[in-house]
Computed example of a mutant assay.
Amino acid sequence: MTEHFEAVARFDAAIANAKDADTAFAALQALVQATVGAKLFTYMTVDMEAEVARRAYTSDPENYPTSGTKPIRYDAWFDIVHKQRQYFVANTIADIAKVFPDYGLINSLGCQSVVNMPVVLGGELVGTVNMLDVDGYYAPERVRTIRELIAVPAKLAAVVAR
């Protein structure tokens, strides 16, 4: 944890001054980049009443813009992330293809592994932090770092973004 002290301190300073979603999630992305790494970073909000998800932040607006919504799909990924409130981790494009219909685009961006981290506030899943990188990237030690260093800051960024 002490090896990431400066990254956490930079996040703390940035989030203290954040007044909108873009600034809050940019601070979170910087923390992720400095501690775990991600070729693609997004934050999706969830509206279960309307049964839609919306990309609220993206590191790649050309391929993954923030405009529009997409319907919630009730599948194995939904069970893991929404119902069980667990991280979804896939370390091959074959495993990503099982749950994400846009796996071809994901692969074309050089991403073959993913971690989707649920963000829960007040007992409600409000969004997911999505980190993607090369094949096999999110090994157990990186996922542990995400749990230890990113989970609480992600909640804080989500609060600021609201």
Rank of each mutant, 00 (worst) to 15 (best):
T2E: 15
E3H: 13
E3K: 07
E3A: 13
H4N: 14
F5I: 00
F5T: 07
E6Q: 13
E6S: 09
E6V: 03
R10M: 05
A14Y: 06
A14G: 02
I15F: 12
N17W: 09
N17K: 15
A18G: 05
A18T: 06
K19Q: 15
D20V: 02
A21P: 03
D22A: 05
A24N: 03
A26M: 01
Q29G: 09
V32T: 13
Q33F: 01
Q33W: 12
A34Y: 14
A34T: 01
V36D: 15
G37Q: 01
G37D: 11
G37T: 02
A38M: 01
L40C: 00
F41C: 07
T42K: 04
M44K: 10
M44V: 01
T45W: 14
V46G: 05
D47F: 03
D47C: 05
E49F: 01
E49D: 12
A50P: 04
E51H: 11
R54H: 10
R55H: 13
Y57P: 06
Y57T: 06
D60T: 03
N63E: 07
S67K: 08
S67L: 09
S67N: 14
S67Y: 14
G68C: 08
T69R: 14
T69Y: 11
K70E: 04
P71D: 10
I72Q: 06
A76Y: 13
A76P: 04
A76H: 14
W77A: 01
F78S: 01
I80K: 15
V81W: 15
H82M: 07
H82T: 08
K83C: 10
K83L: 06
Q84K: 08
Q84N: 12
Q84W: 11
R85C: 07
Y87I: 00
F88V: 01
F88I: 02
T92Y: 02
T92C: 06
A94T: 02
D95G: 02
D95M: 03
K98W: 14
K98C: 11
F100N: 10
F100P: 03
P101H: 09
P101C: 03
D102E: 13
Y103E: 07
Y103Q: 02
L105A: 08
I106R: 02
N107Y: 10
N107V: 00
S108D: 13
S108F: 04
L109G: 08
G110M: 09
C111Y: 10
C111P: 00
Q112P: 02
S113T: 03
V114I: 14
V114N: 13
V115A: 12
N116T: 04
N116M: 00
N116F: 01
P118A: 11
V119G: 13
V119K: 12
V120L: 13
V120R: 00
E124T: 12
L125E: 10
G127V: 00
G127A: 01
T128A: 10
N130R: 02
N130K: 00
N130H: 00
M131H: 07
M131P: 09
D133G: 01
D135L: 06
G136M: 10
Y137E: 06
Y138G: 11
A139H: 15
E141S: 11
E141W: 15
R142D: 08
V143L: 10
I146N: 13
I146G: 15
R147P: 01
L149M: 04
A151T: 08
A151V: 00
P153F: 09
K155W: 13
L156C: 01
A158L: 03
A158Y: 06
R162C: 06
R162V: 05
